[in-house]
């Protein structure tokens, strides 16, 4: 199977230094199980994705692109020519616009099917088919069989990335591709004003629509669990059990008692 792994110029979530997004490192690991994989990056500078060479890729194709340019047309052109069976990508970029649209736009351009949140992938039982496992919320999963080509986005629960190996990174190659970016209609963009991010308190989870105004006020100001922390000293075991069950139901991790609707 021919596999391409999309690599983006991510940023480390804490330090903001250039770093390969973890999901893409996990994508490389998934790719290794499918067949021969090459990395693909579109952007001004390939050094930022060179880390991928130490994570199991031996070659990265680099399409030079002006900073801030839409990578989709260039990536689509390269992928159309290379015609990989599987394109692997992170769920979302990290450090750019972070909209997570690239995989979908590419799939549309390539006529491929998008399967999101993949944690495992293997060739299907017949040629031209792939079998993947998708992570669903709360530990559930879905096994999907699909016809190639596919674009897979990787879920954080996929196997840990391979550890970075400096020696392998040193040996890997980055090949520069010159792509005459096809004059595809530029995607309609949204005019945005940017400023630096200011964190805001989140709503309290578990404060349902019908919660009292006081509850919602508390939720908005972040007065959460500690503000209503509840300590029971030496309760009757039964009383304790009831309090625990009620609490678990309030936060929604335990199903309501049978018959309670």
């Amino acid at each position: 199977m021919k596999v391409a792994v999309l690599l983006s110029a991510g940023r480390h979530p804490v330090s903001g230094r250039g770093a390969l997004p973890r999901l893409e490192a996990q994508a490389i690991r998934l790719a290794a199980a499918l067949g021969s994989a090459r990395g693909l990056h579109a952007g001004p500078d390939a050094d930022v994705v060179a880390e991928a060479l130490g994570r199991g890729l031996s070659q990265i194709d680099h399409v030079a692109l002006a900073a801030g340019a839409d990578p989709v047309p260039a990536l689509a052109a390269v992928l159309r020519a290379a015609a990989p069976d599987v394109v692997l990508a992170g769920r979302r970029g990290q450090g750019g616009d972070d909209t997570g649209l690239v995989p979908y736009a590419l799939a549309r351009a390539l006529g491929a099917t998008v399967i999101p949140d993949v944690v495992a992938a293997r060739p299907g039982s017949e040629p031209g088919v792939i079998e993947v496992e998708q992570a669903l919320p709360k530990g559930a999963a879905r096994r999907v069989v699909a016809r190639l080509p596919v674009v897979l986005t990787v879920h954080p629960a996929a196997p840990e990335p391979s550890a970075f190996a400096f020696g392998q990174a040193r040996r890997g190659r980055i090949e520069r591709l010159d792509v005459a970016a096809p004059a595809e209609p530029a995607a309609a963009a949204i005019a945005v004003a940017e400023k630096s991010y200011r964190p805001r308190p989140k709503m309290m989870r578990g404060a349902p629509a019908g919660g009292s105004a006081a509850d919602r006020l508390k939720a908005a100001t972040g007065g959460g669990e500690a503000a209503q922390a509840n300590v029971m000293v030496s309760p009757e075991p039964r009383e304790a059990a009831r309090a625990i069950l009620a609490y678990l139901r309030q936060i929604g991790v335990l199903a309501p008692p049978p018959g309670a609707g």
Partner: peptide, 8 residues
């Protein structure tokens, strides 16, 4: 955006 460095 940008890994929560900016807001748009």
């Amino acid at each position: 955006a940008q890994g929560r460095r900016v807001e748009q």
